[in-house]
Design a protein around this nucleic acid. Sequence first.
DNA 1: TTGTTATTTCAGTAATTACTGAAATGACCG
DNA 2: CGGTCATTTCAGTAATTACTGAAATAACAA
Lengths: 197, 197
Amino acid sequence: MTETIEMDNLQPSIQSFILHFGEMGGNWGINRTVGQIYALLYLSQEPLNAEQITESLGVSRSNVSMGLKELQAWRLVRSHHVIGDRRDYFSTPEDIMEIALTLLEERRKRELDPTLTLLRQTLMEKPTSAEEKHAHARMKEMCGLMEQVSDWSNELQRISRSDLEMLLKLGSRIPRLLDMKDKLSIVGKKKTKGSTK
Amino acid sequence: MTETIEMDNLQPSIQSFILHFGEMGGNWGINRTVGQIYALLYLSQEPLNAEQITESLGVSRSNVSMGLKELQAWRLVRSHHVIGDRRDYFSTPEDIMEIALTLLEERRKRELDPTLTLLRQTLMEKPTSAEEKHAHARMKEMCGLMEQVSDWSNELQRISRSDLEMLLKLGSRIPRLLDMKDKLSIVGKKKTKGSTK
DNA sequence: TTGTTATTTCAGTAATTACTGAAATGACCG
DNA sequence: CGGTCATTTCAGTAATTACTGAAATAACAA
């Protein structure tokens, strides 16, 4: 009984946030239900079990199960065990920065790594025709850039939380910072001072 | 006649790159054909017309037309006109950095902006229940982070090409740079020298 | 064990998205 | 104009992806 249909029982602002995440799922590479589950857990004050999610969203139990599995594969959702309760409870990490870093790393793994692997493989062999020679040159450019982006992503995972926050707050002050770096030539490999290429 | 099926006539390394982009399409929010068209154009030495793309990939003419339209909407492909030829020719920008910036901006527009709009809207109203109060706090955190990421993205579009290249090359030297910044307090808003918060 | 409840799996189906061929539109030429 | 070729649109269909309910599995407790 009390078959809850279409997430009533949720506050308006919460409901629209969940609906939005459902719609955005398409743009983010997840499906509607997965987006909604994440949104619900993100806003929830306490961890929820699968049954509660099913009721809130009005989708099937099995769909929730699959959605949670996917979100756990993304490391965006964790499960907890409550003493004296056999059900699993699910929540998102509290720390927004941790969430962002997880997202960044997972996307790197899924969107960059496979292509980097292919490119490196391909670039091992040497091109035969002129056509292939040009193609290899193009692949090399792409590979180089992807490696740099990948390095950045990895570095962001490594640095301290305070450095990360600083970096994020930099906003429009990036060029000034770079300018400074340039003057002090902290990054330059050679001692040559004033190469005006 | 000469119905070319399944991209023979392409060199092996080029073919596997195109097939890979087709498969990755799913992870990147575009479909197989769109991915393949992009890959083909990216590697091509000269701009191609729709008919050539159709032949190379073995998909329908109309599918190519739609794919090109989508790639142009992403600003990842441009069309050229050749004198004495009524057909349109298509190519990707040469400069890999320009491509990356375009991708970054388009993804910001599609993946961040709509959510930022919703969050800002929602955060205008004030929460009624305790539940909503907590939800708003969570939304505020998300909004703040998204704004910072959005600012960074915009800043990267603005800065000079050489600064951009420098930044990308930084790799694992980010903390050192930040450290320096900290010492010189170039970013601090106040003149107070040595605020040890 | 057996019973009870939670979770996962999966075959079938629904919904969505991608693709095609045919027809319409557009763009140019003589 | 009328003819030719390029491109786009779109209704119908194919292919893919998402979702469900039922059955299987798992995890305990008595």
